[in-house]
């Protein structure tokens, strides 16, 4: 009898079965963002790259719903097209970071010899501020979509490796893993069958956080002028161009900012909801 004798309390059920209103709202926002990305040609009023010198910095009107930028391009259409880059970058980074981080984390958690070296390498990568690394990578290569995805993905990998490794180490200490060893289960099968499943729930949660932070970083890169070139509209570079006219037309910055923030907020809220449901032990993105 080493377990405390206090009764296990039934969880409040009503809170578990119905999704919270924030979750529903987040899903609506994300569905809208997805629609923007997929149906951009149908939703946009103008070609987002069409320059019209006569129509520079127009206020919002019936033709230009959100006004125009300093090149006379339609802000509304540019924001609609901007969704494409953000959603693709987020998905690419999240998928890439997990595809690379998961096997590394499993290896580090299982093989003690690999662990020490790999984790020092990850410590080293964590020490380099993500945006600086991304800036350097983008600066050295042509700033295309793939480069940006890779540049943002690399600094995210150590977090994934650490998360997976910590879960593997915790699972390894469980008697059921020792039991499997006694049953003669060889290492590869043991890892796939008993250790991998313990990492799935926290990884799903982590993936949503990476998705959100990748969109944020992409916007920051574009904002600093080292992201994807301005011929492809992104929410970040729309703001970067708009900020020169911030005093005169603050909404050139605020409109893309609102759309961007709403989108990230929704993903983060979904991540929190997933965490509460799948993996209540996870303390948050800082694990």
């Amino acid at each position: 009898m080493t377990t405390p004798a206090y009764p296990a309390l039934p969880r409040r059920r009503f809170a578990r079965n119905l999704p919270h209103w924030t979750v529903i709202l987040s899903l609506v926002v994300l569905a809208a963002a997805l629609a923007m990305a997929v149906l951009a040609p149908q939703l946009a009023n103008f070609d987002p790259t069409r320059i019209n010198a006569a129509m520079r910095l127009q206020p919002a009107s019936e033709t230009y719903w959100l006004g125009t930028d300093s090149f006379g391009r339609d802000l509304y259409s540019r924001i609609i097209y901007g969704a494409r880059v953000s959603l693709v970058v987020g998905a690419g980074v999240a998928a890439g970071a997990i595809l690379i981080g998961l096997p590394l984390g499993l290896l580090a958690g299982w093989f003690r010899g690999i662990d020490a070296v790999l984790m020092r390498l990850m410590d080293g990568m964590m020490a380099i501020p993500g945006i600086l690394l991304a800036i350097a990578i983008v600066a050295l290569t042509k700033a295309g979509l793939v480069t940006v995805i890779i540049a943002i993905m690399i600094p995210e990998i150590p977090q994934v490796v650490r998360l997976v490794r910590s879960r593997v180490l915790a699972a390894r200490a469980e008697p059921y893993v020792e039991a499997a060893q006694l049953l003669g289960t060889p290492a590869p099968r043991l890892i796939l069958r008993h250790l991998l499943p313990a990492t799935i729930a926290p990884l799903i949660v982590q993936a949503t956080y990476i998705y959100a932070s990748a969109i944020l970083t992409e916007a920051a890169l574009s904002f600093l002028g080292v992201g994807i070139g301005t011929e492809t509209p992104t929410w970040g570079n729309i703001m970067a161009e708009g900020r020169l006219y911030f005093a005169m037309r603050p909404w050139l910055v605020f409109w893309p900012a609102i759309v961007l923030s709403l989108c990230i907020l929704s993903i983060n809220l979904l991540g929190d909801a997933l965490r509460d449901r799948l993996d209540p032990k996870m303390k948050g993105r800082a694990e």
């Binding site: 959100a212 944020l216 904002f223 900020r243 900012a257």
Partner: peptide, 11 residues
């Protein structure tokens, strides 16, 4: 976590 620093800055 969701609002980029530059947006907060401009706000």
């Amino acid at each position: 976590f969701s609002v980029p620093i530059f947006v907060i800055g401009y706000v």
